[in-house]
């Protein structure tokens, strides 16, 4: 356990020191700032536009950061041969991978916290109300989504090269909402075997869009927080996929000759 924590800490420290996170935050901040400098007819209290643009940029930036960070953890260890002295220590491969995942998640949380800080400062500056309960749920679900993405990137980085793993993870992240909405629309139009395939795709692929509460957060004056049962179901759903991907990654990692 201590070994896993040390590895996690080293991942986090490296992520923070490499300044990539700050660069992503800064670029996102410039983007949001550029949009908000447009004069919107001198109308005060226009909250939805700010919320929508800011939350979308922040979610996407965090997701891409997590994908890149997670996907390069294992290949880089092999490439730089730093994995050998690490595994020579009394650290199991499970602890090693768990530590890596924990580190990536801590880095994701750090990145997201920076974003949320900026978002809240912006909201305060614009005198916008924040629905704290819904906002808290939004942050929690985003972290669940990052967990699924991180484990998926781990898995992909074990079976393909780094660039391919990053690209595929990003493509999956971007298109996941399309898969979810397209399935309902085309289901009635396809033959029986394709219906079965669609159902399989819906259940076998993680529907990342289910962790995106941003649309309700944008229209927060109308929507109450999600019930605990839904949050519980989403937690189980996310952890189930993350566990499967983690176990596959672990199995592949265990088989990898050193």
């Amino acid at each position: 356990m201590r070994g896993a924590w040390l590895i996690a800490r080293s991942v986090l420290v490296e992520a923070v020191r490499r300044r990539e996170v700050y660069a992503v935050v800064l670029v996102s901040l410039v983007l949001i700032g550029a949009v908000m400098t447009v004069d919107f007819f001198n109308i005060e209290g226009l909250s939805k536009f700010y919320r929508e643009v800011a939350l979308k940029i922040m979610s996407v930036a965090t997701a891409f950061t997590v994908i890149v960070l997670a996907a390069r953890q294992l290949p880089r260890e092999f490439e730089s041969r730093t994995i050998y002295p690490l595994l020579a220590k009394p650290v199991s491969r499970t602890s090693f991978l768990a530590g890596k995942l924990l580190g990536v998640m801590l880095a994701a949380a750090f990145c997201f916290l920076l974003f949320m800080g900026i978002f809240l400062v912006g909201s305060a500056y614009l005198h916008l109300k924040t629905q704290w309960a819904l906002f808290g749920q939004y942050v929690y679900l985003q972290m669940l989504q990052m967990l699924v993405l991180a484990t998926l990137a781990f898995w992909l980085s074990m079976v393909m090269n780094l660039d391919a793993a990053i690209t595929l993870s990003c493509v999956f992240y971007v298109t996941s909402s399309v898969i979810l909405s397209a399935s309902t629309y085309i289901y009635d139009l396809v033959p029986q075997y394709a219906k079965a395939l669609l159902l399989g795709a819906i259940y076998l692929l993680p529907q990342l869009d289910l962790f995106d509460l941003s649309e309700k957060a944008v229209h927060a004056e109308v929507w109450p927080p999600l019930p605990a049962s839904v949050m519980g179901a989403l937690t189980l759903y996310g952890i189930a996929f993350a566990s499967v991907y983690f176990l596959i990654s672990l199995r592949l990692f265990a088989r990898k000759p050193l």
Binding site: L141, L180, T184, I202, Y203, Q207, D209, L210, F211, D212, L213, E215, K216, H219, V222, W223, L226, P227, V230, A233, L234, Y237
Partner: peptide
Amino acid sequence: VGDLERAVKP
């Protein structure tokens, strides 16, 4: 999955 989407999305 549909139930979850109806709960999460507006």
